[in-house]
Design a protein around this nucleic acid. Structure first.
Lengths: 230, 230
DNA sequence: TTGTCGGCCGATCGCCGACAA
DNA sequence: TTGTCGGCGATCGGCCGACAA
């Protein structure tokens, strides 16, 4: 997955460590993210956190939902459990030094889909900022100003949209191609769409699905509560 | 799966043994049906055929394609390999005595779908024999004669079709409900449809997909050729 | 008897400006 | 600036009899 697109989909709160940087691995936090009960019974003493070196970071996206995630390979440091080495998903980090500097922020834009955007009845209302800073330049001299916008999703698949500037008052819209995208990606009102101008010049499109229950509700039982003090 | 529907889908060439009957099991034939290379290396001498007793026969259907198959449990007889017992698919049989007597043949009918049947443009042309002997009685006094035909597929799912007798000259047609069935089952011209009036009075519908390459081509290599004489 | 075709009618899709928040 | 709505033209699905194999 294109790194710029990945970060745009993940959101600004997500910072990923660079390889060779040092992080703390929290087994409890990792276990709680699995939504299953992890059995630590076979391991006598599980420390609350383990200082590790980042071996590798892979930016991935779910094949069906397009949701982004990362696979981080860690090596523990110090004099305990030398050679302990496994791939993990969704690492829990505190060490934010050495993260990838995001000051070279690529131009990106996200919008939460309205009812009108998600209704199969029509197109997508493009905020002016997005049309003017992310999309390719539109020839406003034409009547009406129209172009085809091509964007790659997280899998590299190409999507084409008819981008038109019309109406009174004038506004930017995506028409032909938009409903196909909504249907294929199973988007509903409340989901978000992300447009990114990648470093190589490609226009990329990603999605961020609205939280629909599941996580965020009341705490699920964890055998860790009795072990971790603070 | 309803046994009558299963046999109608499998076709008249397929005869299944009754439990407790005796059959010969051909390891070579079974291995060749797997479409993979079966490694008999770990077994010193594999006999060409093994006399077995049928323990159980299960009539099954693939969850996605609706294609029918059977799972036959065999127990070897004689003084070799007592206790050898495993479930197998698609048993290869020569002993046709003791098979289920098919003289109490339930009324069934099959038709290969034409272009007009499979085109999304329309309905299904019902051969007169099928409409008069398999379908429920139609009230020809009505104008036009119409009824709703309800049929269960191999999974027990219910499908409804509008059955009408119309046109000049008159003919039987399935209209409303037919295209949904074709789309859901992914039927194309050349596939066959099967209608069965089961013993309990239920009308059942099954499908038989046209062979589209794969099997039936040139022989695939088999390590058995060097062992089996005739 | 039944496979294929063109006609035709209603439903849906999707592009549009009006209008207002 | 942009979300929602109703209008409306194009397209598509699907039911029909004509006709011929």
């Amino acid at each position: 997955v294109n790194p710029q697109l990945w970060h745009a989909c993940a959101g600004g709160m997500v910072q990923m460590p660079l390889p060779n940087s040092h992080v703390y691995y929290f087994p409890q936090g990792h276990a709680e993210h699995t939504l299953t009960t992890v059995d630590f019974g076979g391991i006598p003493r599980v420390p609350a956190f383990i200082l590790c070196r980042v071996i590798d970071v892979k930016f991935l996206a779910d094949m069906e939902s397009d949701e982004v995630y990362a696979k981080i390979r860690l090596n523990p440091l110090g004099n305990t459990d030398i050679g302990y080495n496994r791939g993990i998903d969704d690492g829990v980090l505190v060490e934010t030094r050495n993260v990838h500097d995001s000051s070279d922020k690529p131009s990106s834009f996200s919008k939460t889909l309205t009812q009108s955007d998600a209704n199969n009845g029509g197109g997508f209302s493009v905020p002016r900022y997005c049309a003017e800073t992310i999309f390719p330049r539109l020839d406003y001299a034409a009547d009406p100003p129209v172009q085809t916008v091509v964007a790659k999703d997280v899998h590299g698949d190409v999507w084409k949209f008819r981008h038109i500037y019309r109406g009174t008052p004038r506004r930017h819209l995506l028409t032909t191609g938009w409903s196909t995208f909504v249907n294929q990606k199973k988007l509903v009102a409340g989901d978000s769409i992300v447009f990114v101008r990648a470093e190589n010049g490609d226009l990329c499109v990603g999605i961020r699905r609205a939280k629909r229950g599941g996580i965020g509700g009341p705490d699920s039982p964890s055998s860790w509560n009795s072990y971790s003090g603070n």
